[in-house]
Amino acid sequence: MANRGTNEWISGLATLRATQRQPRVRRYATGPSIDAESPAADDEASPPADRTGHTRPRPMGIGRTTMPTQNEVVCYGCGFQFVVRGRTTVTQCPKCGARLSMKDETITGGFHEECVTAGKVTLTRSAIVDGGKITANDILLEGIIKSGQVRAHKMLTLAKGAELPEDLLDARSLKIGPEASFDFERTLELHDVEVCGELKARIKATGTVTVRASGHLLGQLMAKHLIVEEGGGLNCALDVQPNRTTWSSTEDATESTVAEPQARPLTEPPIIAPIAQATAGDTP
């Protein structure tokens, strides 16, 4: 009886020590965060019991570290890309030293001023931009842009109802929102493209083109990576080659440098013959 009481007392002391020391560990731990699935994390979640059913003290020095959120930021001064940890409204570019606003802005109604941020700008359905300059890392366009300068250093999202003259489209990556439908006549040179609505364009993408289940891509596509979810539509002339680095500016997806397919032609007429005609007029 007395022995059991001593055991309980020792165990209780050990637990007390553990709880006392844990905050210190959390405060000073700077190493990589412990994955919830890692053995150490499991250990902490359900400490092992000894033969008497009492929990043994956990090994010291291991704590759960909550890492602040990471934000990839592109400097609107020099274009340098860096990572900012945590939420902040202002930061400094490590390359050019520019002080960058990180505020998220929302524009409604008429707008013809300047809005420059390394955060996100949302142009609501009522927004009408006529002149002015909008520069942001991410831009969500639900309204209308008539004129001005619009630059998304990361992602431009065109939502349903958005209007944008195609010569003003200036973004690294493009997303077409659900139920939105856009038809671009110019060649879009982008990094990533995500299609949740309908997009008809001639696209050269250095990254990944994703056609979601609700999306439909038409036209021509030259890309390194392509993902099509089941349900997505694809009516395109394609040249998708993960190992390829560049496409010449005059090259069409239909006149690829890879060897022509050796297959005999289908007895029925070619599948999308008009695409070639559509681009023939563009070719110098």
Partner: peptide, 20 residues
């Protein structure tokens, strides 16, 4: 009628896939 494409494929040609 339906198409799924995984990342990593090489595909040179034309596609006519129109689930709707």
């Amino acid at each position: 009628k339906r198409l799924t494409v995984e990342d990593g494929v090489t595909f040179v040609g034309r596609s006519e896939v129109n689930p709707s």
